[in-house]
């Protein structure tokens, strides 16, 4: 696996709800092992872009390639196979509320592997321990805090050792310390597993701390205006909107 092999390529993508065009002409590349940040102001379509990447919503125009495969041009089986190699952490965790954490994490394993129940229990224990929640197997999602739900959501997303992990606003609604620990967790997982991470966020601290590649969606121009390492973007950009965003509104 080389460092710069393209993992997801997006070409001329247009996102729309009915007649309302949200973003057009999106073209960027996510490399293997990237922590790729999708950033932009509220309502610019960050989350929509992610739902297109993970196969929940078809784009109005344009293409998404996973490796060499045209994702939305492929048949549903191929799409399913690709998406099964990725994991998603939803904004609210989206844990299945009628199941315990252990059952939540076990479900993908039961569905897609031939592991014995004992082996599954071990894997579940390990995944929970990885996100710092060892011992919470028998808890229901409603019984733990929001930050813990997000961590458990990551554990579930990692259940099948995915090649790509999607994070929808991982630090939204978390206190600064928890948010920081979540960032560390994402970095750590990338370092040790080499997983490609796609993170939707507008949390500046996170963007600079973890991102090594990014795309900026400019809501006023309805398209992307920059892509690259966010730290480099901050140093080099001349675009006033991006500058405003990356400096928290301080013009310099």
């Amino acid at each position: 696996m080389t460092e710069t092999a393209a993992h997801i390529t997006v070409r001329d993508l247009t996102m729309a709800y009915g007649d309302f065009v949200l973003m057009r002409d999106l073209t960027f590349t996510i490399n293997r092992g990237d922590i790729f940040i999708i950033m932009g102001g509220s309502g610019c379509g960050k989350s929509t872009l992610m739902t297109i990447l993970m196969g929940l919503k078809a784009p109005a125009k344009g293409k998404v390639f996973y490796g060499e495969v045209d994702f939305w041009g492929a048949d549903p089986q191929t799409r399913n196979r690709i998406i099964r190699r990725s994991g998603v952490m939803y904004q609210s965790g989206a844990l299945w509320s009628s199941m315990t954490l252990a059952e939540n994490i076990a479900l993908p394993l039961e569905t897609y592997t031939n592991l014995s129940p004992a082996q599954i229990r071990e894997v579940v224990k390990l995944k929970l321990a990885l996100v710092g929640m060892a011992g919470f197997e028998e808890f229901y999602p409603a019984e733990i805090s929001g930050g813990m739900q997000k961590r458990a959501g990551i554990a579930r997303a990692m259940a099948l050792d995915p090649e790509i992990l999607f994070f929808d606003e991982p630090s939204a609604g978390l206190d600064p310390v928890s948010a920081r620990r979540l960032d560390d967790l994402i970095l750590e997982l990338r370092e040790s597993l080499g997983t490609t991470m796609v993170v939707v966020t507008h949390e500046l601290a996170s963007i600079f701390a973890i991102g090594n590649n990014s795309v900026f969606l400019d809501v006023s121009q309805r398209t992307m205006t920059a892509t690259g390492n966010p730290n480099q973007l901050l140093a080099e950009t001349r675009d006033p909107n991006l500058r405003l965003f990356l400096t928290r509104g301080e013009q310099s």
């Binding site: 929940l56 099964r84 299945w96 569905t111 897609y112 579930r156």
Partner: peptide, 17 residues
């Protein structure tokens, strides 16, 4: 419906279930 609101159904779909 509540599962739909909580994105739990999306979570099933993205797991291919």
């Amino acid at each position: 419906g509540t599962m739909q609101v909580n994105q739990e159904i999306d979570a099933l779909k993205t797991l291919g279930i």
